[in-house]
């Protein structure tokens, strides 16, 4: 509990640092004052004298939603990664494995090509189509995996991979006939938080909080599941129900995250493994810490993405892999040294 609290505090500090970094330079102290000023009651006591309203706008309207969106997305991807790796008993499982993200990409591609403009819950046409595409894909994978009897996670994994590949090739086919869209679609799939708004952040936060709570509530049962399905049953787990709960919740989380921020790889695969190397295999720890670690990691990566080559933005997906992979490899080395194997 204490550790969770420290992880939360660390998240807040990282958040403060992230909103302070950028082309308009601010001290962390000034950013803190601007953020506190926005709080309902404490805000009355914080004086903003000496800080221009421009800075206030930059911190509160521009950077804050973006940083929070990155944090929520990172948290979701990492917690879903840990859930999938447990439920599929597969260390290579990542949030995009069931094809949800390919479905989202296909939806986004269609919206971009059609040039639609609508807006619901802060999502533009691209986001809405991506969300719809993702949900349709979950439904499709689920139904396809159920054919010929009861649902098995192995079936689901294989079906998901097949459907994911099929959807990706549909996007390729579409782009073959719409050359002008290639750059736009490609950049979308790499992921970005440049278009963050408070509405999007609020939309994703609802999913993040409810979904993560649902997944973490099943963490103890997921531990038993990692011992094998029959073992879990004998220890009192209704394995079918747990699998359904985890897969449906995770898919919804990924659908929401991908539709606001594109397909960001690597976070969901690597962060849970890093957390496991640091605090052991107990999912009661792995899942909540993955959320915090994923949030901090993606927030940091996005800060790098928007500042390192400013005013040009580097795709955040590129940064996650460039920074995450070496760190992960160093952790594996350390672990091997510790175990002496």
């Amino acid at each position: 509990m204490k550790k969770i609290l420290s992880a939360f505090l660390l998240l807040l500090v990282a958040l403060l640092a992230a909103v302070s970094v950028g082309s308009a330079d601010l001290s962390m102290w000034d950013s803190l004052k601007i953020l506190l000023h926005r709080l309902p009651i404490a805000g009355e006591w914080v004086q903003l004298s000496g800080i221009g309203t421009v800075y206030e706008t930059i911190v509160w309207e521009v950077r804050m939603p973006r940083v929070l969106l990155a944090a929520m997305t990172g948290g979701i991807l990492a917690v879903v990664g840990s859930a999938y790796q447990g439920i599929f008993l597969n260390p290579l499982a990542d949030p995009h494995i069931l094809g949800v993200s390919s479905g989202a990409a296909l939806g986004a591609t269609m919206a971009m090509s059609a040039g639609l403009s609508v807006s619901v819950w802060g999502l533009g046409a691209v986001g809405l189509f991506a969300f719809a595409g993702a949900l349709l894909t979950v439904f499709l994978v689920y139904q396809a995996a159920k054919i010929g009897g009861s649902l098995s996670v192995m079936h689901m994994l294989l079906t998901g991979t097949a459907i994911s590949t099929m959807l990706s090739s549909m996007i390729s086919l579409w782009m073959t006939f719409h050359h002008d869209q290639i750059v736009k679609v490609y950049m979308w799939t790499l992921g970005s938080f440049a278009a963050a708004t408070w509405e999007k952040t609020a939309f994703l936060s609802v999913f993040a909080v409810v979904g993560t709570a649902v997944l973490c509530a099943g963490a103890g049962k997921l531990n038993l599941m990692m011992m094998g399905e029959e073992d879990a049953k004998c220890l009192g787990v209704d394995t079918g129900r747990l699998q359904k709960t985890f897969i449906v919740t995770s898919s919804l989380l990924v659908a929401a995250a991908v539709s606001v921020s594109g397909i960001i790889g690597f976070v969901g695969l690597i962060v849970p493994h890093c957390v496991r190397l640091l605090c052991g295999p107990d999912n009661r720890k792995v899942m909540p810490f993955s959320f915090f670690a994923g949030a901090i990691f993606l927030m940091a990566c996005d800060t790098v993405a928007r500042t390192v080559a400013a005013p040009t933005e580097v795709p955040v997906g590129v940064v996650t892999a460039m920074f995450g992979a070496p760190y992960f490899i160093s952790l594996i080395w350390r672990e091997r040294g510790r175990r002496g194997s």
Partner: peptide
């Protein structure tokens, strides 16, 4: 309670954690 012939061995749980799973119900 059931004692199977064997359990998965590629999981990183400690002996204590594994035995604690018996308290899960």
């Amino acid at each position: 309670a059931f004692l199977p012939q064997t359990i998965r061995e590629d999981v990183d749980f400690t002996v204590w954690d594994t035995v604690a799973m018996g308290r899960e119900p």
